[in-house]
Simulated assay, not measured.
Amino acid sequence: MDQYLTFATNNPMLSMLWLAIATLLLFSFIKGKLSKVKEVNNQELTLLVNREDGVIVDIRSESEFKKGHIVGSKQLSQEKINNNTFQGLENSKDKPIIVVCTAGLTAAKAANAMAKAGFDKVSVLKGGFSAWQGANLPVAK
């Protein structure tokens, strides 16, 4: 323990940096566990759709959606999500909703908006459509 204190007093910048990184990691971990929105992988998405009648919501642009999308998914623009306009999804509030974007980065914001709008089981596809394609899973055009 004395060595840690000696290191901390001799290297205050490194110690502060380490403490900041540890705090951010802990915050990120706790936030993920407490969030209503969960991340699912390709297999979990398939199970949610097949067993629980889940709905896949693709938030990519309409042109990207037309080039290829997960079979059975519905396209919903980011603009409609920002306006809380969830056309065609009103009857699916109690079903699992899986939000898909290109790489899994922008879907979290849309999923949080849907959770705030009253959707009970909202998830995000980890890795997005790129991960789906990378696994050679079926794509509709």
Score class of each variant (00 low, 15 high):
3 Q>H: 05
4 Y>W: 03
9 T>R: 06
10 N>H: 07
13 M>N: 00
14 L>G: 08
17 L>G: 04
20 A>T: 14
22 A>P: 10
25 L>C: 12
32 G>Y: 01
38 K>C: 05
38 K>Y: 02
38 K>T: 09
41 N>Y: 11
42 N>V: 12
45 L>R: 05
46 T>I: 04
56 I>N: 01
61 S>I: 02
62 E>I: 10
65 F>A: 04
66 K>P: 02
70 I>S: 01
70 I>H: 03
72 G>F: 04
73 S>C: 05
73 S>K: 10
74 K>I: 14
74 K>S: 11
75 Q>S: 08
77 S>T: 14
77 S>P: 13
77 S>L: 13
79 E>P: 01
80 K>T: 10
83 N>I: 07
85 T>F: 13
90 E>C: 00
91 N>D: 14
92 S>Y: 13
96 P>A: 09
96 P>T: 12
99 V>M: 08
99 V>C: 07
99 V>K: 01
101 C>K: 07
103 A>V: 14
103 A>T: 15
104 G>A: 07
105 L>A: 12
114 M>V: 06
115 A>I: 14
115 A>K: 08
117 A>T: 12
120 D>G: 09
122 V>T: 10
124 V>Y: 06
124 V>C: 13
125 L>N: 07
125 L>R: 03
126 K>W: 04
127 G>K: 00
131 A>M: 07
132 W>C: 11
133 Q>V: 02
133 Q>R: 03
138 P>M: 01
